[in-house]
Design a protein around this nucleic acid. Sequence first.
DNA 1: TAGATTGTTAATCGATTAACAATC
DNA 2: TAGATTGTTAATCGATTAACAATC
Lengths: 213, 213
Amino acid sequence: MCSVPAPISEKTIGRLSLYRRVLDRLLREGVENLYSHQLASSTGGTAAQVRRDLMSIGFTGSPARGYRVQELLNRINDFLGVTDGVGVALVGVGNLGRALLAYFPYRRPSLSIIAAFDRDPERAGRVINGCRCYAMEELVPVVREQNILVGIVAVPAAEAQNVATALTEAGVTGLLNFAPTPLRVPAHVRVEYLDMTMSLEKVAYFARQRKPM
Amino acid sequence: MCSVPAPISEKTIGRLSLYRRVLDRLLREGVENLYSHQLASSTGGTAAQVRRDLMSIGFTGSPARGYRVQELLNRINDFLGVTDGVGVALVGVGNLGRALLAYFPYRRPSLSIIAAFDRDPERAGRVINGCRCYAMEELVPVVREQNILVGIVAVPAAEAQNVATALTEAGVTGLLNFAPTPLRVPAHVRVEYLDMTMSLEKVAYFARQRKPM
DNA sequence: TAGATTGTTAATCGATTAACAATC
DNA sequence: TAGATTGTTAATCGATTAACAATC
C-alpha cells in the first residue's frame, strides 16, 4: 500500500491552478458533480488530460457521476497548498509593478503581495493598493521578518539579477521573473519566467502569417 | 534546390523573439560575432537549441567565427516580420489594461497599441499613455479602419468571449488573452494565453515545496 | 440492460539529448 | 596542426493519443 510518490508534471501544476478557479466558480453556481470533458471545455484542454491530472494527485471519480466538485476543489486546494497562503514580495514599482499590485490585491487569501520594494526613494514609504513600499535597503530584513517565500521581479533586465540575488539571500524560494533575462539562483530556488513582450510578438507573428484572408 | 518549407516549432518563434532582443543589445555594445553558447547563456537555453533554432530559419554560422550578429538580427527581424510593424488593439482599460499601455509604449516601432476600448463610458474618450480610448461600440469600425491585426484581451473572464468574438469579427487574426478562460475563435485566428495568476500559483507551489531549508 | 464515463495500457508523436564528422 | 565550434544523424526521453476493459 506504500504507493510511489506520484510524478506530478510541471504543466499539471499549472493546470490544477486553472481547474481550481473553474471549480470555485462552478461550486458557487451550485454544481455538485462534473465530468472530465466539462472541466476540459472550461479550461481549453482534453478530457483525457483532465483525468490524468486528477489521477496524478490521487483523486478518483465514478463513471456514473463523474467527479464531486466540492471534494475535488478541497483536494486541489490542499495539494497546491493555497489554504495556508503564502507571502509575496514585489520588487520594482514602475508601471508593471503598480499593475501587479492592482491585479493581485493586498491580503488576498492565498497569494498576497505583502511588501513592495523600489530603488527610487520617491516611491519608498508610499502605500499603493494597500501595500507598503520600502526602500531597496530594507529588502532583506523585511522579507526575512515577514517570512516571505515568493518574489516577483518587475525591474528592468539589467537589474534583475541583483534583485534575484537579494531576494534569494533573504530566504525566498520562488521567483516570478518578468524581465527577459535568465536568472542565476541556487538550486533550491524555483524561477518562473513570464515574458509579455515575447507573448505579444508570438501572437503578432502568427497574426501576420494569417493576414491574407 | 527547392527546399521543403521548414517546420518551425511554436516554441522556436518565442525564442527567436528573445534572441532578437539580446542581439539588439549586443549589437549596440559593438559585438560583431557570437557563438551559440553565448546566446544560450543570455537566454537561458542550450547551445544546441540555439543552433537548431537558427538552422530552422536557414541561418548558418561558421565554426571559426560563430554567427554574425548584424546579419542574424536582420534575418530574425525579417522572419518575425517586426520590420513592418503591426497594429495592436487593447480591450479593457482596468488596472491590467493601463499597465499594458504603460508597458507597450504607444507608437513603438514593431508593436504598438494604437487603440484601446472599454465598456465604461468614463474611460472612453480619454487618452492614456498616448493611446486613445474608445467606447466598446466603436471597436469593430476602428479596428477595421486602422487595419489592426492583434487584439489584447484584458477584461474579466466573463466578458472575454464576447470581446474575442467582436475582435475576430473586426478582422483581427491574433489574440493575446489575459483572462483565465479558453476562447472559441475561427480556425484562422491564433490565441495566445497568458495567465499571470497561474504563473504566480505555480511559483508559490514550488516555493512551498522547497520551504524547509 | 444499454450507454456514457472512468482508469489503464499500448502506440504514437515530438522534442531534447548524445554522438560524430566536417569546418575554420 | 590542434582545438573549439558548427551541422547532422541516431538514441533517448516524455507527453499525448488511441484502444479497451471496468464501472455505475
